[in-house]
Design a protein around this nucleic acid. Structure first.
Length: 105
DNA sequence: CAACTGACTGCCG
DNA sequence: CCGGCAGCCAGTT
């Protein structure tokens, strides 16, 4: 179990991301109250993989480069698919424009 | 208890 | 634009 208070704040923040927008790990961390701890966000989401009960839009969280940071290209493709369904576009390098689709808090 | 590891990031060259 | 590197944290071994 990873029901720590820290993770809850992170999940709560991720749920605020509006549909059709994406946020970076670092941004989530900052908004949740943990500046410079992007990795912590990555951890929280990684733990989420086993807990499907948590309704968190994990696919709206990407790295600072604007691309999916998932290990396998397979999962990355799935994430892009979910985002594309919400209107987020990716270029041929599989990157998205954070200036345009980035979540403006 | 120390060493590893990983859904990250900013800085350098 | 891209690879390399150190800082950061929590959960595992």
């Amino acid at each position: 179990m990873s029901g720590s208070e820290t993770y809850r704040k992170i999940f709560r923040t991720i749920r605020r991301i509006p549909k059709g927008k994406v946020a970076t790990y670092g941004q989530i961390a900052r908004v949740a109250g943990f500046p410079n701890q992007a990795r912590l966000v990555g951890y929280a989401l990684h733990a989420l993989r086993g807990d499907r009960d948590e309704t968190v839009p994990w696919w709206r969280v990407i790295n600072a480069r604007g691309e999916s940071s998932l290990g396998s290209e397979d999962d990355a493709a799935l994430q892009r698919g979910l985002l594309k369904k919400e209107g987020v576009r990716f270029d041929k390098k599989k990157r998205t424009d954070l200036k345009k689709f980035g979540w403006k808090k």
